[in-house]
Amino acid sequence: MTAEPLGATDRKVGRTTGRRSGSSKRLARIDAAVGLSFAAPAVIGVLVLGLVPFGYVIWYSLHDWSPLIGEFNWIGLDNFTRLIADDTVWSSFLTTFKYAALLMVLNITLALGLAVLLNQKLRGTTTFRAFFFSPVIVSAVAWVLVWNYLVAANGGINGALATIGIQGPNWLRDPTWALVTVVVIQVFKGVGMNMILFLAALQNVPAELKEAARIDGARPSRVFRSITLPLISPTILLVVMITTIGAMDVFVPIQILTQGGPGRSTTVISYLLYRTAFEQQDFGYASAIGVVLFVVVLVLAALQWSSRKRWVHDEV
């Protein structure tokens, strides 16, 4: 779907260099060799460490495999029939979607809000920018460990709420709050990155356009909606895609904060996969879950991609 710009550039580059040089055939041959060998490490790497292992995953998913005992037996589609009837798997997919959707909404709203705030002409925005960005560079484990203390039932946040007479919920142990709490902790961790991307996009919106609209009598909110938002929509798409892919991969906060509980309210699919493979030593079944996960990611990516034209302005 994206080879077009690549092909086009290639052709142009090839043609111009070809015309200039006397022995274009020789140059083309050298280019072919150099190009292939430049691209080789990345391409071979992805083949060997991505695509081929995925083939193995499909192969494994057709087996009953307990590596602890060393059994590896062909069982056809049994893992998939088991999977279809397995509520745990489907609830984990649902939890993953909930997690990703909530993270997306909170993260992007907050990132955009912060970017707009920091885009005001105020002294000291650099300092605040550093504040908001700093969790991005704090190690993921460290961030989560600290919050684990703060959100404990008798931890800092509830302690603070208690002093003003509010009984805070049991953040990580209450099924209605646990996932939200994990999401919020992750939003604070990562929103700085998206904020920077938005900030860059905002500063690239031509001031004349906004000014013109303002002179035409548009209120600031209207200017934002009609001028700014459409102009930064490519960045929004980008941020949405990065954030989704990141959300599908979440592991550290779940492992450290909730271990998937209470109940299964925070068991996301990547965590279920890890547990199935490395805790229950059921590699075959874990592979089957992996295959389904891949299909789901594929469908989601396709949906996001095909919907982009409807809301992304001015994509060339």
Binding site: T2, P53, F251, S270, G290
Partner: peptide, 18 residues
């Protein structure tokens, strides 16, 4: 290039088993 792109859609936790 297509090979590269398709690799991006494979979640890391899936291929960890092989």
């Amino acid at each position: 290039f297509l090979v590269l792109m398709s690799g991006m859609m494979i979640p890391g936790e899936v291929t960890i088993i092989p």
